[in-house]
Computed example of a mutant assay.
Amino acid sequence: MIWVGTAVVVVKTVILLLGSGITYIAYKAYRRTGASSLRTLGIGFGVITLGSLLAGVADQLLSVSLEMGVLINSVLVAIGFAIIMYSLYLERT
């Protein structure tokens, strides 16, 4: 089952790279346009990316239980999605 640990690290790294890229692009768009909805969108993706990073660190370096790692990731993903939903609401108003 060593391959599962390696697969988790690889997938978390891909999520970190993609999430960071999306966050950076949203930030650049915000700087270019000044639209607060784009800033909030970037924050939402940043929180989701942070959740993935923290869950990976907790699993690999802090040796927390799988359940706790999933909980950390899930809470931050839920918060990130709420922020993204709010950013889309801002765009409509």
Rank of each mutant, 00 (worst) to 15 (best):
A55R: 05
T23M: 11
A35K: 14
L16R: 05
R31H: 14
V64D: 00
T93V: 11
G46I: 01
I22E: 04
V14F: 08
L71G: 01
T23P: 07
L16E: 10
L90P: 03
L62G: 01
G5Q: 04
M85E: 00
A78I: 10
V75D: 09
S37M: 04
V75Y: 06
Y30H: 15
F45K: 03
R31Y: 08
A82G: 15
L50C: 05
Y27Q: 13
K28Y: 09
A82K: 06
G56H: 04
T33G: 13
M68F: 13
I48S: 02
K12C: 13
G34D: 08
A26P: 10
R39F: 09
W3P: 00
M68R: 01
L17G: 13
T49G: 02
G46E: 05
G42R: 01
L88N: 00
K12D: 14
L18A: 14
L66I: 02
S37N: 12
S20V: 02
G34S: 09
D59G: 05
L88H: 09
R32L: 11
T40Y: 05
I43H: 01
S36E: 13
L50N: 08
L90H: 06
M1N: 12
A26N: 14
T6H: 12
V64L: 14
S63M: 10
R39S: 12
A29D: 14
G80E: 07
F81R: 02
F81V: 15
V70L: 02
I22Q: 08
A35R: 14
R39H: 09
I83L: 10
L50G: 05
T13K: 01
M68T: 04
L61G: 00
V10R: 03
T40V: 14
T40K: 01
S87M: 12
Y24F: 12
L62S: 03
F45A: 02
G42Y: 00
L66A: 14
Y86A: 12
L38H: 07
V8I: 06
A78T: 15
G34V: 00
T40A: 11
T23C: 10
L53G: 08
L62K: 02
L17Y: 03
M1W: 07
S87Q: 07
N73K: 11
T23W: 03
R39C: 12
V70K: 08
G56K: 06
L38A: 09
I2H: 12
L62Y: 12
T93M: 12
G56Y: 03
V75Q: 10
E91M: 15
L16S: 14
G34F: 01
V8P: 00
G42K: 01
S52N: 13
A29K: 11
T33M: 08
A78L: 13
F45I: 00
A35F: 03
A82L: 15
L66N: 15
T33A: 06
F81Y: 07
G19A: 02
S65D: 02
G5W: 00
G56C: 08
L18I: 13
Y27K: 12
L41R: 01
V77L: 13
Q60M: 10
S36H: 02
I79A: 15
T93G: 15
L88P: 00
L61R: 04
N73R: 12
G69S: 09
N73Q: 11
R32W: 09
V75F: 09
G19S: 05
A26C: 14
